[in-house]
Write a protein that binds this DNA or RNA. Structure first.
Lengths: 293, 293
DNA sequence: TTGTTCATCTCGTCG
DNA sequence: CGACGAGGTGAACAA
């Protein structure tokens, strides 16, 4: 029996079912009228209403209303669920530590409680990620510009690891920051941090190599403006597109933008029409739902 | 009847129920063995397994496994759900445009289908947000430093709106960037963008006011280093704490950190123990669940 | 619609 | 654990 369900159980009955479902490691749904309190990283209060509570065997808890993709309240995986009947009412509490967080759902009525035995794969294969974009570039560096040569990926710097590091045709170091979608100002700043870090590295190495140049004050500037041309580090933002503001910031810093999409996952076959071979009119039935908005 | 449920329905029966539930604007859960395909901003494929599909009347769709807070697959609100029986199997497709996205769930078995009539409030009152932190500062600006005076909130700049803008005791302009939790490098960059924008504004205004200073090249530097002291703009990052790397970047830019938490929502009463008055031993029952990790 | 930022972001990965 | 960045981020809000 992959699922057991109780309709309009008493609060006591609901508790017994929960207890049993916890033991079995089931995925639990509780639909009922409830109020919800949360306290932890922030604090929140949700007044009475019908909601769907989902309790997962990994400790995750979700409270869903009839709207939104995001739960109104939740608890992350790793939490511990407690159920009790208090004052005759079912109460579910989910707690975790570090950070200390508590979610409490108080039911006034339980309409339905289900416990489901979940099996099977949860490995999702996604394409179109930033990693895919990187593979695309490494496979054909000329997509960035003729003569570009990647020398490292995830190369570390004082500001963190850079997506792609390399040199251009003239031997000038180049930092690439990759984004799978249109970018705003923050991506430019991120690129800037990496470029500054590399420029800093190089100017430090240069002064160490060359005892003649003792110019400590001038050396600590991190901007491209006052770096000599030989010390220049290029920054290229690789993304499908860029906002106006980001473009301004990019220009201010003397960085560049290369428009590039993550590789398309080939033909648009969601199987919408032709996966099951027979696409003629069959006795298949259909039902539609347009959102009421 | 707030809930209707079908156990092990035929695929045809499941379709009828879905059709009816769509019409009623119900919150639908379907538990069964299925595969899931997504294509849109990215693309993904999920092999066979038992999952819980949730269809909301606002067009949201969620596919949940027994793990994680985040659904393995989903569709945002505003999507349109279609159900059909194809090749004898229930298939649910959810689509939306801009961006074009399609989610397809193909069931091999439907264990349970429920339709719930959801009513009641979904207004969540949250405390401890960045807005609360801002209110706290505006109520007592001395928390930043003696003599600090806020002059504007969400004041716009070329780099976007600043959380709080003001002047210090010496009349020097100050930009505050607020964060409700510990911050890393990106917050420093964000603050930097605003400070640069204000400094730019002021230097532009100064050259406009003063016809003597025609020094177009020197004026376009955005760093604090070469700005004269009278043109200086202070940047203060207000957050509970800050990472080491962020502290370095902050120092590089000559910015400051003020340690400040969002206001605590008073006593830690999640109602865990004493909300229902009687906290003596009653005949209340308990059940626990520790995550199996 | 697009742009920008906050979020109890969540999630992975790497020291 | 903490730090850092990606994400089909989602969601609110302003232009």
């Amino acid at each position: 029996m992959p699922v057991t369900t109780r309709h309009d159980p008493s609060h006591r009955e609901a508790l017994w079912e929960l207890e049993s479902a916890f033991d079995r490691g089931a995925l639990i749904t509780v639909f009922g009228a409830c109020s919800v309190e949360y306290r932890g990283r922030a604090a929140s209060s949700l007044g009475p209403g019908d909601r769907l509570l989902i309790l997962k065997p990994d400790g995750a808890a979700l409270v869903h209303t009839d709207e939104q993709r995001t739960p109104v309240n939740w608890q992350p995986p790793g939490s511990t669920h407690h159920a009790a009947v208090r004052d005759g009412r079912l109460r579910v509490r989910s707690e975790r530590s570090s950070p200390d967080e508590t979610l409490i759902v108080r039911f006034s009525t339980v309409h339905q409680l289900s416990a489901m035995a979940v099996t099977g794969g949860r490995d999702l294969a996604v394409t179109g990620s930033e990693a895919d974009l990187r593979r695309r570039i490494l496979a054909d560096p000329a997509l960035i510009e003729p003569g570009f040569e990647p020398t490292a990926i995830e190369r570390d710097s004082a500001a963190g690891p850079m997506d792609v590091f390399g040199v251009d045709a003239a031997g000038t170091p180049v930092v690439l920051e990759l984004k799978r979608r249109r970018v705003g100002p923050s991506a430019v700043s991120q690129l800037g941090r990496y470029v500054d870090a590399v420029a800093e590295e190089r100017s430090a190495a240069a002064t160490a190599d060359d005892p003649d140049s003792d110019d400590p004050d001038a050396a600590d500037s991190g901007t491209a403006a006052d770096a000599s041309d030989t010390d220049r580090v290029r920054g290229i933002l690789v993304a499908p597109s860029i906002t106006d503001r980001a473009a301004e910031l990019l220009a201010d810093r003397g960085f560049e933008h290369v428009a590039l999409d993550p590789p398309a996952p080939a033909g648009d076959d969601t199987g919408a029409d032709d996966t099951d071979a027979d696409d003629a009119d069959t006795d298949d039935v259909d039902a539609d739902d347009a959102p009421s908005s």
